[in-house]
Measured scan of single mutants.
Amino acid sequence: PAHPYDRLKTTSTDPVSDIDVTRREAYLSSEEFKEKFGMTKEAFYKLPKWKQNKFKMAVQLF
């Protein structure tokens, strides 16, 4: 299930529990994912792991 970005980011005051914290981005809706990352999930997962992590750090999901 998708969760709002505000509850997934590492600085959230009301974090979602029971998620894989190493894959926070996977819980974003497709729309919100595209808004935050500027690309689709499919394109994101084709990137090298280090680049994925760099993007995730930039949007507080790492």
Score class of each variant (00 low, 15 high):
residue 6 D to Y: 01
residue 2 A to T: 15
residue 15 P to H: 06
residue 13 T to K: 09
residue 56 K to R: 11
residue 12 S to W: 03
residue 9 K to C: 15
residue 10 T to L: 10
residue 49 K to Y: 07
residue 10 T to E: 06
residue 44 F to R: 00
residue 55 F to L: 15
residue 45 Y to I: 02
residue 38 G to E: 09
residue 50 W to A: 07
residue 29 S to Y: 03
residue 4 P to T: 06
residue 49 K to Q: 11
residue 58 A to V: 08
residue 38 G to A: 08
residue 15 P to T: 03
residue 3 H to R: 05
residue 58 A to H: 10
residue 35 E to D: 12
residue 14 D to N: 13
residue 30 S to L: 11
residue 9 K to P: 07
residue 40 T to G: 07
residue 36 K to E: 01
residue 7 R to E: 07
residue 14 D to K: 06
residue 50 W to S: 09
residue 5 Y to K: 05
residue 13 T to G: 06
residue 1 P to Q: 13
residue 38 G to L: 09
residue 5 Y to W: 09
residue 18 D to N: 13
residue 37 F to P: 00
residue 49 K to W: 10
residue 25 E to P: 04
residue 45 Y to T: 05
residue 36 K to L: 15
residue 4 P to L: 08
residue 34 K to A: 14
residue 6 D to Q: 01
residue 50 W to N: 02
residue 47 L to T: 00
residue 62 F to D: 15
residue 12 S to A: 13
residue 37 F to H: 01
residue 58 A to P: 00
residue 7 R to K: 11
residue 25 E to T: 06
residue 49 K to L: 14
residue 42 E to H: 09
residue 41 K to T: 08
residue 33 F to I: 01
residue 56 K to S: 02
residue 8 L to V: 08
residue 7 R to A: 09
residue 26 A to Q: 14
residue 5 Y to E: 08
residue 1 P to D: 12
residue 3 H to K: 03
residue 16 V to I: 11
residue 55 F to S: 05
residue 8 L to C: 14
residue 50 W to C: 09
residue 50 W to T: 02
residue 47 L to H: 02
residue 13 T to R: 11
residue 19 I to F: 05
residue 3 H to L: 13
residue 49 K to R: 12
residue 26 A to S: 15
residue 15 P to S: 02
residue 4 P to W: 08
residue 38 G to D: 04
residue 39 M to W: 02
residue 60 Q to C: 15
residue 4 P to I: 04
residue 28 L to N: 02
residue 46 K to H: 13
residue 35 E to P: 01
residue 23 R to Q: 11
residue 45 Y to A: 05
residue 40 T to Q: 03
residue 42 E to M: 12
residue 15 P to V: 05
residue 51 K to W: 12
residue 45 Y to F: 09
residue 45 Y to H: 02
residue 38 G to N: 10
residue 29 S to T: 13
residue 56 K to P: 04
residue 61 L to H: 08
residue 5 Y to N: 04
residue 26 A to V: 10
residue 28 L to C: 09
residue 8 L to Y: 07
residue 9 K to A: 07
residue 27 Y to R: 01
residue 1 P to Y: 13
residue 15 P to E: 04
residue 60 Q to G: 12
residue 41 K to F: 08
residue 10 T to H: 06
residue 43 A to T: 13
residue 21 V to H: 10
residue 1 P to L: 12
residue 23 R to G: 03
residue 49 K to G: 08
residue 9 K to R: 06
residue 15 P to I: 06
residue 43 A to H: 10
residue 47 L to K: 00
residue 55 F to K: 14
residue 28 L to V: 02
residue 53 N to C: 13
residue 50 W to P: 02
residue 30 S to I: 13
residue 61 L to R: 04
residue 27 Y to D: 04
residue 31 E to K: 10
residue 59 V to R: 06
residue 35 E to Q: 14
residue 48 P to R: 01
residue 41 K to R: 11
residue 9 K to F: 10
residue 7 R to H: 07
residue 48 P to K: 02
residue 30 S to A: 14
residue 35 E to L: 12
residue 30 S to R: 12
residue 8 L to G: 06
residue 39 M to L: 03
residue 17 S to N: 12
residue 36 K to H: 11
residue 20 D to E: 09
residue 3 H to E: 06
residue 25 E to V: 09
residue 55 F to W: 14
residue 51 K to Q: 13
residue 40 T to H: 09
residue 9 K to E: 09
residue 39 M to S: 01
residue 38 G to H: 11
residue 45 Y to P: 00
residue 4 P to R: 06
residue 51 K to M: 15
residue 43 A to R: 11
residue 12 S to R: 03
residue 6 D to S: 01
residue 24 R to D: 02
residue 21 V to Y: 11
residue 17 S to K: 14
residue 54 K to C: 15
residue 47 L to P: 00
residue 31 E to L: 08
residue 57 M to H: 09
residue 7 R to Y: 06
residue 4 P to Y: 08
residue 21 V to A: 10
residue 11 T to D: 14
residue 15 P to C: 11
residue 37 F to Q: 00
residue 13 T to I: 11
residue 9 K to L: 08
residue 7 R to G: 07
residue 40 T to K: 07
residue 3 H to W: 15
residue 61 L to K: 04
residue 30 S to V: 14
residue 56 K to E: 02
residue 54 K to N: 10
residue 50 W to L: 02
residue 35 E to R: 10
residue 2 A to I: 15
residue 62 F to K: 13
residue 62 F to S: 15
residue 34 K to R: 13
residue 54 K to Q: 14
residue 56 K to Y: 03
residue 42 E to I: 11
residue 51 K to T: 12
residue 10 T to R: 01
residue 11 T to Y: 06
residue 60 Q to M: 13
residue 23 R to N: 06
residue 3 H to Q: 07
residue 28 L to Q: 01
residue 7 R to F: 07
residue 40 T to P: 05
residue 29 S to L: 02
residue 60 Q to N: 12
